[in-house]
Each structure stands twice: as structure tokens, then as C-alpha cells.
Computed example of a mutant assay.
Amino acid sequence: MSEVKILLAEDHLVVRNGIKLLLDSQENFTVCADVNNGREVLELLKTGLKVDVLITDLSMQDMDGLQLVQEMNSLYPDIKVIVLTMLNCPQHVCKSFENGAKGYLVKNVGAEEMVFCIKHVHKGGRYLCEEIAMDFVQMSIEKHNCIPMPVDLSELDLSNRELEVLQLLSEGLTNLEISDKLFLSKRTVEGHRQNLIEKTKSRNTPALIKFAMLNGLIK
């Protein structure tokens, strides 16, 4: 994987330093700069700083995250924007993606999911954290009274091991926890998850879980 250059916008210094420490410890991740707000992001980019991914909070002084996402989409469309915030209401999620964000994470997200999100978005994907995605699924089920319809497993060609991994993913286990539980390597678990995403034509892991729920593949 090529190096991912990251710019971080977060107005709480302790939080910002913690995120920076985590990201800098990852192979192929480099935090090029970290700033307090959206205005500082734009001023820094005007100097010619080259970054691949911007991670920004929504609640910031001077220029909030939603306005920054909109400005980035207009001025720097090649830079992928990921929102990292405490706000988990549907309005903020939808508005962020509408303004051009490629990822949305809440601040209690695990390190593994954050790293996965950055890699996925950097490669051109979009990502909504599993916590919010599952809330959306539940709201959709309650609103539309969806009844899971079983699919023809022979058409999906899912192995028993893939179904085991799918079930554990739906229970909120991380790749590392699944690898320990099934006595597999973490890389093997990641491979099974990617196969599941490809076979079900899902966009990401939350979409995979939604597909599995609606089609009766998980308990």
C-alpha cells in the first residue's frame, strides 16, 4: 500500500494528539499536519501542502466541519474527507455525505475500524461507521417493517467459514477478536470479510451486515 498523507483538524488538543499518535504508529500512514479548525486547513493547503486524506471534527470554532467539507469538495476534490465527531444524528451524517465527505466516524470508534476506514476511503470507497450503520438498519426495519427474505446460498457460494465470520462480524467482533475465536490469522479473517463484501456486492462492512440481516444470513 502506498503512503497515505493525512491532515487532521480537531480543536481539542488532547484528542488531536491521541489521534495523531495512533495514526503515526500505523505503517504507511503519515500525519503531515494537525490544526485547530477548518480555516487553518484551507490556509495550510494554500501553501501547497499535499495530502491524501483530511480527517475533521464537525464542531469547531471559526469554521465548522460541515462548511469545511463543502469547501474541500469544491476546492480540493481529490482530497478524501473523513468526518470524526461525537455527533451521530442522521441529519449530520446525511449532510456530511451530501457536502462531499467520503467517510463518517464517531469518536468512540475503535482504532482498527478507524484504520480500515482510512484505507478504504483512500482507495476510493465510502465508509459509515458500524455503530451508526446498524442504527440506520434498525430504524429502517422498524419504519418499513422489513421481513428478512432468505437468499439462495448456492448463488452466493458462501463457505461455512465465511458464514461463521459473517455471524461474528454482526456481533461486533473485530478482525483480531474473530481470529482468536476461530484460531485463524488476522489476515485470513480480513480475506474472508473482503470475500463476503465482494460476493454480496456490498459497499463495505456495514452494508454487508445490513444485507445479511435483511436476507436471514445471520441470527
Rank of each mutant, 00 (worst) to 15 (best):
N215E: 01
T56K: 10
E40D: 15
L168E: 13
I178N: 05
L153F: 06
V81K: 01
L22P: 03
Q61D: 12
V41L: 11
I19S: 01
E198R: 14
Q138P: 00
C89H: 15
Q138G: 00
S170H: 13
Q138K: 15
I178H: 12
E10A: 04
N215H: 15
L163H: 02
S140E: 14
Q61Y: 04
L169R: 12
V189Q: 08
E198K: 15
K181I: 03
D157I: 04
G125M: 10
E198M: 10
A212N: 10
L163S: 03
E142V: 06
L156Q: 09
G110W: 05
E198L: 14
L182E: 14
T85D: 05
G103Y: 09
S170I: 00
L7Q: 04
L42N: 08
N175Y: 12
T200D: 08
H192G: 00
E164Y: 09
T200E: 07
L196C: 09
L84H: 15
A207K: 12
E10V: 07
I197N: 00
R39S: 09
E98Y: 15
H192R: 06
R126L: 02
F97I: 05
L23N: 01
F183C: 10
N160W: 04
I79A: 02
I118K: 07
G216Y: 09
F116S: 01
H12R: 10
N195P: 00
F183H: 14
F211W: 05
M60Y: 11
V69W: 11
K107P: 01
R39F: 08
L68G: 03
K201W: 07
K181C: 05
L45Q: 01
N195G: 01
R193P: 00
N99Y: 15
L196S: 04
N88D: 15
I6C: 04
P90Q: 13
Q91C: 02
L184E: 12
T188H: 14
N204T: 12
Y104E: 03
F29S: 04
E43F: 05
D135P: 00
G38E: 08
V53A: 03
P148T: 05
M114P: 09
S179E: 07
L166S: 06
N215W: 05
K20F: 05
F136Q: 08
A111F: 08
G172V: 11
G38V: 09
A212E: 05
T30A: 11
K119V: 02
P150D: 09
L54G: 06
M149R: 13
K50V: 05
L66R: 06
N108F: 06
V115H: 06
F116V: 00
L156T: 05
F136Y: 15
R203Y: 10
G38S: 03
A133P: 09
K201L: 11
R203W: 05
L105H: 07
E112W: 09
H12V: 14
E190S: 14
L22E: 02
S154I: 05
P206Q: 08
G110Q: 12
I6D: 01
M86H: 10
L208H: 02
E3Y: 03
L182P: 11
L153G: 07
L54C: 11
L184K: 11
N204W: 06
V165Y: 11
M114F: 12
